[in-house]
């Protein structure tokens, strides 16, 4: 592309720039995860085990924190597909991490409905509090800050997804406190939607 100058942000931004640098330690499912995997595979026809690749990768990520080349190899062997097939999937979906992430991954929704309700300020507040930019992990390895696209809860904007749970209607002034609360008390501080529906109206 030559029609206008190259911009700094796209050197690290594009999906093709994701690389896996880390083979990781030898990987095999724990007995518990293996049992869970065997149960999940039964949901699909016997000749279609490949369908279980997403749940299988979630198990790897749950066990190891992120997905290593050895994790990919293990899944490929269990499903009877090639490592390239698994890597194809890992590199496509945005919820698989191929690098170590913090204990709490703070995903701030940045799309329209959250953005018009102050999501940019929430990101800024978290960024200032943690001293890191979106996409980075803090030096203690506790928090990773990410900006993500629409999370599908625009009525409760702005949304911060922390690992697999949600924190809703986050005010920029409260964002810094969220960090302290998470550090002190863990995920119980989140206002996940299933707990608040009853309180509305």
């Amino acid at each position: 592309m030559s029609f206008h100058p190259k911009m700094a942000y796209d050197a690290t931004f594009h999906r093709s720039a994701r690389r896996r640098e880390d083979e990781g330690p030898p990987f095999a499912y724990t007995a518990e995860n293996r049992a869970r995997f065997d149960e999940i595979v039964k949901r699909y026809p016997p000749d279609r085990r490949r369908s279980a690749v997403l749940p299988a990768l979630y198990l790897v990520q749950h066990q190891h924190g992120y997905i290593t080349a050895n994790g990919i190899r293990h899944v490929a062997e269990l499903l009877g597909i090639t490592r390239a097939d698994v890597e194809d999937v890992v590199s496509y979906y945005s919820m698989f991490y191929t690098k170590p992430v913090g204990k709490f991954v703070l995903n701030v929704c940045r799309t329209l409905s959250c953005a018009v309700n102050g999501a940019e300020r929430v990101t800024e507040a978290l960024s200032t509090k943690l001293g890191i930019k979106p996409g980075e992990t803090d030096p203690t390895g506790t928090f990773t800050l990410m900006e993500v696209e629409c999370l599908g809860a625009c009525d409760r904007a702005p949304i911060v997804m922390v690992n697999d749970a949600w924190h809703e209607c986050v005010k920029p002034v409260d964002a810094a406190r969220l960090v302290d609360d998470l550090r002190a008390r863990g995920e119980v501080v989140l206002s996940g939607c299933q707990h608040v529906v009853e309180r509305r109206r």
Partner: peptide, 11 residues
Amino acid sequence: DWRARQPVGAH
């Protein structure tokens, strides 16, 4: 200024 607004909260 809209970027700095506070959320209204869901109902």
